[in-house]
Simulated assay, not measured.
Amino acid sequence: MDIRQLNAFRVVSQTGSITKAAAILGYSQSAVTSQIKKLEAVVRAPLFERRREGVRLTPGGERFLPYVTRLLRLSDEAMSVLAPKASLVGRMTIGASESITTYRLPDVIRHFHSAHPDVRLTLRTFHEGPAHMAEALARGDIDVAVTHCVDPGPEGAQSKRLATEPLTLVATPEHPLAERDVVTSADLCGTRTLIVQATCVYDVALRTALPADRTVAPFQFGTIEAVKIAARSGQGVALLPKVAVTDQLLAGELVELCWASPVTVSSYALWGENWEESRLLTALDAQLDRVAGEWHRPDRGPHGGIVPRIPSPSTGSRYPGLVSG
Rank of each mutant, 00 (worst) to 15 (best):
residue 246 T to H: 08
residue 239 L to M: 04
residue 223 T to E: 01
residue 254 L to H: 03
residue 226 A to D: 10
residue 243 V to K: 01
residue 239 L to Q: 00
residue 223 T to V: 04
residue 232 R to I: 12
residue 248 Q to M: 15
residue 255 V to F: 09
residue 257 L to Q: 03
residue 252 G to I: 10
residue 221 F to W: 07
residue 252 G to Q: 07
residue 241 P to L: 09
residue 261 S to C: 12
residue 256 E to V: 10
residue 249 L to R: 12
residue 239 L to W: 00
residue 244 A to Q: 03
residue 247 D to R: 07
residue 253 E to T: 13
residue 224 I to G: 14
residue 245 V to S: 03
residue 226 A to V: 04
residue 244 A to E: 06
residue 251 A to T: 11
residue 248 Q to K: 13
residue 244 A to H: 02
residue 239 L to I: 00
residue 245 V to P: 07
residue 244 A to M: 05
residue 248 Q to Y: 15
residue 260 A to H: 14
residue 256 E to R: 07
residue 224 I to Y: 10
residue 236 G to W: 01
residue 251 A to L: 10
residue 242 K to G: 15
residue 250 L to C: 11
residue 257 L to G: 04
residue 232 R to K: 13
residue 245 V to H: 04
residue 258 C to Q: 15
residue 257 L to H: 01
residue 233 S to Y: 15
residue 234 G to V: 04
residue 246 T to I: 10
residue 225 E to D: 11
residue 240 L to D: 07
residue 250 L to W: 06
residue 231 A to V: 06
residue 247 D to G: 06
residue 237 V to K: 00
residue 250 L to A: 11
residue 239 L to R: 00
residue 231 A to N: 01
residue 231 A to D: 00
residue 251 A to Y: 04
residue 261 S to G: 12
residue 241 P to K: 04
residue 236 G to A: 01
residue 253 E to R: 12
residue 227 V to A: 05
residue 221 F to R: 06
residue 227 V to D: 06
residue 239 L to N: 02
residue 246 T to C: 09
residue 233 S to Q: 15
residue 256 E to Q: 09
residue 243 V to F: 03
residue 257 L to R: 00
residue 249 L to M: 11
residue 256 E to G: 03
residue 236 G to C: 02
residue 245 V to K: 01
residue 254 L to N: 09
residue 238 A to R: 02
residue 226 A to G: 09
residue 253 E to D: 15
residue 259 W to A: 06
residue 236 G to I: 01
residue 250 L to Y: 03
residue 243 V to H: 02
residue 255 V to E: 12
residue 241 P to H: 08
residue 247 D to A: 11
residue 221 F to I: 09
residue 253 E to H: 12
residue 252 G to K: 03
residue 240 L to G: 07
residue 227 V to K: 06
residue 221 F to K: 08
residue 249 L to F: 10
residue 224 I to V: 15
residue 226 A to S: 04
residue 241 P to C: 10
residue 244 A to N: 04
residue 258 C to N: 13
residue 240 L to Q: 05
residue 224 I to P: 14
residue 242 K to I: 15
residue 222 G to N: 06
residue 221 F to P: 05
residue 260 A to S: 13
residue 252 G to V: 09
residue 223 T to P: 01
residue 231 A to C: 02
residue 255 V to M: 06
residue 262 P to H: 09
residue 227 V to M: 05
residue 240 L to H: 08
residue 231 A to W: 03
residue 225 E to F: 02
residue 226 A to F: 01
residue 252 G to C: 12
